[in-house]
Design a protein around this nucleic acid. Structure first.
Lengths: 111, 111
DNA sequence: GGGCTATATCGACAAACGTCGATGTTAGGA
DNA sequence: TCCTAACATCGACGTTTGTCGATATAGCCC
């Protein structure tokens, strides 16, 4: 699936200066929807905390009190939204924050 | 209902510097949930666009293709999240953006 | 190849959510 | 006081979503 945020400039202009179009609102809402779940906020936070090294799924499952399939499900949603990138190293999968994507969302909220 | 964002300093420290607690994640997620709907993004955008004057419900219903009760429902969710303030003037209800609340959310997303 | 480990996908189910029409509430005007 | 207008709440319905156990896939090692 195509990430919702793949280009810093293309998406989500500040919707506080002038009314956004129906399409822009839909794109913004889909990104916010990815963030609209405590488990996903914690995942994003934990992954951001380890920085460029990336966090593997095996580190992320225990802190959350959720099954491994559920954690994989949430990671996929964050990745589909363009907020995470995924990299395989051997048997493990490492997730990293896409800071540019978060910057876009952050900027969209400012006047 | 108590707004989720009623104090700029109290809520939502940046969750990108270090892992947030379970409770902080829940608070952040509830705010993002309020934004996780195209109709609500458009409402927020339209209300922000008119500035301090505030927007009355009668102006907000026609552009969205939704019934008046549904629009009232969305406005309530945004207000409960602390993103909007409401004021009655005669028969009309005027909604305004709470910029400080949006600033909190925006800052939480930055490194 | 066979077995083991890490992760992803599938199918199902309950809970949450968006939507509407109908109705309630509040305020202004005749 | 009665009527009308603006907005909010209620009750119901279909859809979406989070969750799990079971299963599939991918990759390492013996």
């Amino acid at each position: 699936m195509l990430p919702l945020v793949d280009n810093v400039e293309a998406c989500c202009p500040s919707f506080l200066t002038s009314a956004v179009s129906e399409e822009e609102a839909g794109q913004a809402a889909r990104i916010f929807k990815a963030l609209a779940e405590p488990a996903r906020v914690r995942l994003l936070s934990m992954i951001a905390a380890v920085g460029e090294a990336g966090a593997c799924v095996c580190e992320l499952v225990p802190p959350l009190d959720l099954s491994q399939p559920t954690v994989s499900h949430h990671l996929r949603i964050l990745q589909d939204a363009g907020l995470l990138s995924r990299e395989r190293r051997g048997t493990w999968a490492y997730y990293r924050i896409r800071q540019d994507a978060l910057a876009v969302v952050s900027r969209a909220l400012l006047v």
